[in-house]
Computed example of a mutant assay.
Amino acid sequence: MKLWLREATAPSLALFASASTLVCCALPALLITLGAGAVMAGLTANIPGLIWLTAHKKELFIISGIMLLLAALVKWLNRNAPCPIDPKLAKACTFWRRAGTIILSIAAICYLVGGFFAFFAADLLL
């Protein structure tokens, strides 16, 4: 199996799912806070999926959380997988392991920021 496929696919999918939580909940809050309500209105008029994501945010967070946990599980199970003996492939293996960990960390941060704005920010900040 290709190294990048084994080490970075699950974290990349988790990042994609976690980024959708930012689009759902953090982006509208940011735009409204900055006084860009007209921009937000334009986005909702031109991107109808944004309203759908906001209306189904609980399901979105559940699916994103499951994907994040599965990606973390895959990273955990592959943590001691051997890298090839060839120095060039071993370097690539180390790079992709580190890249996968960074991608997974960014996905977790996106998920937490989206969760804060979706469920806690309105109660705390208003």
Rank of each mutant, 00 (worst) to 15 (best):
K57G: 03
I103W: 11
L30G: 09
V39A: 13
T9N: 07
I51D: 12
P82W: 00
D123P: 02
M40R: 11
G100C: 01
I63W: 07
L3Y: 05
T21L: 09
L43R: 10
V39Q: 08
P84Y: 03
G42M: 04
R97T: 01
F117T: 07
T21K: 09
L126P: 11
L70S: 11
V74M: 09
T9W: 07
L3P: 01
V113T: 13
A72L: 12
L15V: 09
F95P: 00
A71V: 03
I47Y: 15
T44V: 12
Y111N: 02
Y111K: 08
L34S: 06
W96T: 09
S64R: 08
T94A: 14
V39I: 13
W96N: 02
I109T: 15
L112H: 04
E59M: 14
T54I: 00
L34E: 03
T9S: 13
A8H: 02
W76L: 03
V113I: 15
T9V: 10
A55G: 10
F117K: 00
R79Y: 00
P48G: 11
L73C: 10
L5M: 08
L77E: 06
S20D: 05
S20Y: 05
L15C: 11
A99S: 04
L50G: 14
F16C: 05
A8V: 10
R98D: 00
V113N: 12
G114W: 06
A71I: 09
V23F: 10
K57N: 04
L13I: 11
F120V: 10
V74Q: 13
S18F: 02
T101G: 13
I66D: 03
F120E: 14
A107K: 08
R79W: 01
L22E: 14
F61I: 06
L5P: 00
L5Y: 04
F117V: 04
C25I: 01
R97E: 01
I66V: 15
L68E: 01
W52E: 06
T94L: 08
P48A: 10
F119K: 09
V39Y: 04
A99E: 07
H56G: 08
G42V: 06
I32T: 09
F116D: 09
L34H: 05
L124D: 05
F119Y: 14
L68P: 01
I109A: 15
S64E: 03
A10P: 07
V113C: 06
K88M: 05
I32P: 00
G37S: 12
L104F: 02
R6Q: 02
S18L: 02
A41D: 15
L50H: 14
A81V: 09
M40F: 13
A92T: 08
A19D: 06
L70A: 15
A26E: 14
L53I: 11
C93M: 11
C110K: 03
G49T: 07
N46K: 10
L89A: 15
L30F: 07
P87I: 12
G49L: 10
T44F: 08
T54M: 03
